[in-house]
Amino acid sequence: MPSFFSDPMVQSSLLPLTLALVLTGLLRLLLGPVRGRRIANLSVILSFFILACLIQGLIFPPVGSTHKIPYLLGGLALVALLVDLLPVRGKALMVLLVVVPALALGWLNATRWAGADSELLVKEALLYGATLLVLWSLFRQRGRGLDGVVELLFASVGFAAISLMGASALLTTQGFALAACLGGYALWNWPRHRFALGGGVLMAAVGLVLLINQALLLTDTSVLALALLLPVFFADSLFSPLEKRWPLNDVTRPLVIALVCLLWVLIAAGVSFSINPITADAGY
């Protein structure tokens, strides 16, 4: 049984999906119809944190940035809990969404700042800028069904595929695990939308940014391919002008958004493949 749970295929699909599915239901059940609905999305970051611990293990004290990821995800889960429990809303939440990723990236790269060259600073500035855009996009989608969740799910799938081509199976496993966590949560919200997008999903997006940071700085992952994932977070805006003509409901809307996201992910993965192709002689 332990080897079943340590199988990367299980860790990146069945396990996170089931865990998020069960945790979402449990949170709703235990915390009641009002608070439970609000906090249910905590299952996403919580499941992702548990999976990261399982995939990487917990090294104490965390020396390298890779070892810091599970600790940071644990911290993000705590922030998410506070955001949804209190709840933190409006401008206070916006300030939090600016500060939290800055602190997380700051600590993740702590050993690099002293000898930082211009390449590192440019990469980090661009990543932070993109993070703010992503969080703003998700922030504006609160209470709008599954849009943001589907976008983050496909961005995670895209990241996993691209990082596989950049030669990091560890990041790939975690990327797919995050997508599966979002999938488990999404199953509760489709075809009927039940729970609000809150701190749990927003902090999971910060978690994805941390993985992207690792891919950017430690692997040969294509920067261009990663940048092409950014429009995924605006898939809902892409067809909103057409919505007046062809109105969508809670059932069809996530499917259409998923199709738009899939298209973008395929483009990004295609660009990555043209730069770092996967070949049969990968040596695994």
Binding site: T66, A167, S168, A169, Q214, T219, T279, A282, Y284
Partner: peptide, 9 residues
């Protein structure tokens, strides 16, 4: 290719 993977995180 395997060497590249071994040098990765």
């Amino acid at each position: 290719k395997r060497d590249k993977h071994l040098a990765s995180p």
